[in-house]
């Protein structure tokens, strides 16, 4: 069984933060959920639980950054990008302070708590902030790298994490690079550009499609900003059809970023968007929710078929 993203996150905080005196960790009374509590146990003097005061936490984090610390600011994604947005904007974005906004329980992963706790617009919000870089964890190995990267690479970042277990897509020791998407499967008929939990599901969809004779490439675009436009254009040219897949609204997230990049280069190939159709969700099990809101392998496969058909009818 693969490791839950939040476990991988908490363990990585300890692994990379314990020996680095500049790393400080803040949480807003959800450290047991985010797993930042693992860091508290290892380095109590560098852990700050501010209670349920997310805006204050985010601004305090900025203060730490302004005196040379590397603050990991933790709470649920739905709250860090809303209550934490003003500090993110004035201190992280405008002042370019070295703040790390860590969005726990991304997407619908806090399934049973319902739409008040689901984050379906976090990437759109944070992507719009100048200077912020935006990443999505797609498995435990990548999560580990993202924590290390956040410590090593200066500047404001938003990282979307998850409560849940995602299928493992990377072997241990995989090398990642900022701004470079990962090609997980080659394919000449279409390219699925996915992030987060949708990466593993896209690989399942690609297998299903291969059985029908449709060869779909799968790219993990975990680095949503900076986006790997070069890789995207390469696949737009070679495959001629793109499908984005994200556990997020179809407005403003990965799909929006991909569409912007393609249009900017006049790479006008058919593009299909898998994501939440500008709607709110409801409570239920995570698996049921992903199915109901068409964030699963069959939905990705269907969108690929539709997009490939558009490409063929245009020829």
């Amino acid at each position: 069984m693969a490791k839950a993203i939040r476990e991988a996150y908490g363990e990585a905080l300890v692994k990379y933060g314990r020996g680095n005196p500049d790393v400080v960790v803040l949480d807003a009374d959800v450290s047991g959920s985010t797993r930042s509590a693992l860091f508290q146990a290892a380095c109590p003097e560098r852990f700050f639980n501010v209670g349920v005061a997310e805006a204050n936490m985010a601004a305090m984090g900025a203060g730490f950054a302004s005196v040379g610390k590397i603050p990991f600011i933790n709470t649920f994604a739905a709250f860090i990008v809303t209550l934490g947005l003003l500090p993110a904007r004035i201190f992280g974005s405008y002042s370019n302070l070295n703040v790390k906004f860590m969005g726990a329980y991304g997407g619908l992963s806090d399934a049973y708590d319902g739409p008040s706790h689901h984050s379906i617009e976090d990437v759109a919000i944070m992507r719009a902030l100048p200077n912020f870089r935006v990443y999505t964890a797609s498995d435990a190995t990548l999560t580990d790298w993202l924590v290390r990267h956040a410590i090593e690479s200066k500047g404001p970042m938003y990282v979307r994490l998850s409560r849940d277990v995602f299928p493992s897509v990377y072997g241990p020791g995989t090398v990642f690079e900022d701004g470079k998407g990962k090609v997980l499967r080659e394919g000449k008929d279409a390219a699925i550009v996915a992030c987060g939990v949708m990466v593993g599901l896209a690989l399942d969809a690609a297998k299903e499609l291969a059985a029908e004779g449709i060869e779909a490439a799968v790219i993990d675009m975990f680095t949503i900003k900076p986006l790997d436009a070069e890789l995207l254009l390469e696949f737009a040219r070679s495959a001629g059809a793109i499908v984005t897949a994200e556990e997020h609204s179809v407005i403003g997230g990965l799909g929006g970023a991909v569409a912007e990049a393609l249009v900017a280069e006049q790479a006008c190939v058919p593009v299909g968007f898998v994501g939440l159709a500008d709607c709110h969700t409801e409570c239920g099990s995570y698996a049921e929710l992903l199915k109901k809101y068409q964030l699963d392998a069959p939905a990705i496969a269907a969108k690929v078929r539709e997009t490939v058909a558009k490409k063929r009818s245009a020829l």
């Binding site: 601004a59 900025a62 203060g63 302004s66 003003l86 002042s95």
Partner: peptide, 24 residues
């Protein structure tokens, strides 16, 4: 020392600075 403008956020940031400087 710190960009300000939107009201309300300054004291929180100042507190983070104070705690960071104390750690150092």
């Amino acid at each position: 020392d710190l960009s300000t403008g939107p009201l309300g956020a300054g004291l929180s940031a100042a507190l983070g600075m104070a705690l960071g400087l104390r750690l150092s």
